[in-house]
Design a binder for these strands. Structure first.
Lengths: 265, 265
DNA sequence: CTCATCGTTCCGTTGTATAGAACAATCACT
DNA sequence: AGTGATTGTTCTATACAACGGAACGATGAG
């Protein structure tokens, strides 16, 4: 053996910095101590301290003179805002969503599909005026294998991607989540034929959801429009109205992305 | 000499990664090639490639199979979107700004002060309905030593900070920029007494600006509300109306931040 | 067919990230 | 005041990641 193979590089300093940033952003607070972060992320305090010092040099975080604690810096928040223009959706998508909610008076969200992660990102939310509403936490990843928000995307993925996702075990999020691949594939066929997905509490108990896919310029799914209705308020007679409104919204956004008209099946 | 001092650390891998990210966010495009980035940032192509590969592992960027080019990943955009809640301003600040613009029908911006950088960040913009408007590029850093947007903040900084800033040479951005420290200090006194700043083309030629500071819970300046009016349209008779509207806006935002009433001088 | 250019890989060298222990300052409580 | 448990910070040797110039293979244009 001429050389000990390093094989995998398992330290990944940059990855650690990113994990630190991500943790800070996702944390409800906005000011943190070194040892507190260290405990939470299972990094040695000295490492956290060095990382923060480096990030301070790049203006990502600020050190508070008095307490010695750290916060996110304005420069990072500036990045934050500017990055919004890089979204795969037109800025007007929100307007379409607002119009949809105004039309049916039920809460609507925009889901964005991420290929690497094979998950959906809840990116925007317009709430209905009615008092009973579900709490949707924005900017969180959601599964693609359960709930209308996921299925409306999954159904329209390329054959190969779909097969790969279905070949893995399907997690059950609620009692009505479909965990049988055969049954799920059948459901996906129906969704493709209909052009929308309608589910009852597959991801969140007690919520009915209607979702329709949004297509990009190359015909690929980029996300979906999702209408979420509390089950007690859901009247099946309204289904057509909801479906049409959701599909219209997705179609409008797709059109702005330069997608050609997408015919079912 | 017992030891050769390493003195300064001049490689700073993390800093490079940040510069790369920042450049991508600020770039108008949304897909880049390795050598293109390398040329722009003066990094060796191999370094850029390695950085991108690392960042892909942390889901900051995505590699496009076909072209081999890179884009920002949804996970990064999720981070940035989520970070918005960490801003030092209440979400309702935009509403107050909108109200201000509705009242006077001139464009208004929100400036945020950054202590490390000693600059102002133009963070939000509501435009007037009139056809002649200045183009304000959002999420850009602006100087604190020129223009109403800067002076309204500078005037209310702690004595020590102000002295330090005035001790350095003052850059001239236009012909009317004040570059004499004595003259500037006098102007700042007036701004403090009046509670607002009014300037003619100090930063941008042909623009009149009215700005009033926003204070945080501890009485420190966190930013300002700025009204920008094209000079040809500016009627001095309107000054009082503008000033009152701008100050009211800043006062409303300050109040939501928990600031106590701030009396001039 | 040729040439330019792309992203990528290679590899010896350089110097930074690492983590545990010790340090100094601060605060809460006795 | 005094004590003890915090806090953020500094220090150190060593392991390993970042570095960048040169070479590689694939691709597209002329």
């Amino acid at each position: 053996m001429p050389k000990a193979r390093p094989e995998t590089s398992e330290r990944d300093p940059l990855g650690r910095a990113i994990r630190l940033l991500t943790w800070m952003v996702d944390s409800p607070r906005s000011e943190w101590g070194v040892r507190e972060i260290a405990a939470e992320l299972a990094f040695p305090p000295s490492s956290v301290h060095r990382l923060l010092a480096l990030m301070e040099r790049s203006n990502l975080v600020v050190r508070h003179e008095a307490s010695g604690t750290y916060s996110l810096d304005l420069e990072f928040l500036r990045l934050t805002h500017r990055a919004a223009s890089k979204l795969p959706l037109p800025p007007s998508a929100i307007d379409h969503l607002r119009h949809l909610v105004h039309e049916v008076d039920e809460s609507a969200t925009l889901g964005l599909y991420n290929h690497q992660r094979q998950m959906v990102l809840f990116h925007a939310l317009i709430e209905s005026s009615k008092p009973l509403r579900y709490i949707v936490e924005l900017d969180r990843w959601a599964p693609i294998t359960a709930g209308a928000s996921g299925l409306a995307i999954l159904a329209f993925l390329p054959e190969a991607d779909r097969a790969r996702i279905l070949s893995k075990p399907l997690e059950a999020f609620t009692k009505t989540t479909i965990t049988n691949p055969i049954a799920l594939e059948a459901e996906l066929v129906r969704i493709r034929e209909q052009g929308y997905a309608l589910t009852h509490g597959q991801r969140q108990p007690g919520a009915v959801a209607v979702a329709a896919p949004i297509f990009g310029a190359h015909g690929q799914v980029v996300g979906d429009t999702v209408l979420t209705i509390p089950e007690p308020r859901f009247d099946p007679a309204d289904t057509d109205r909801f479906v049409e409104a959701v599909r219209a919204c997705s179609r409008a956004i797709s059109a702005e992305l330069g997608a050609v008209e997408h015919s079912p099946a």
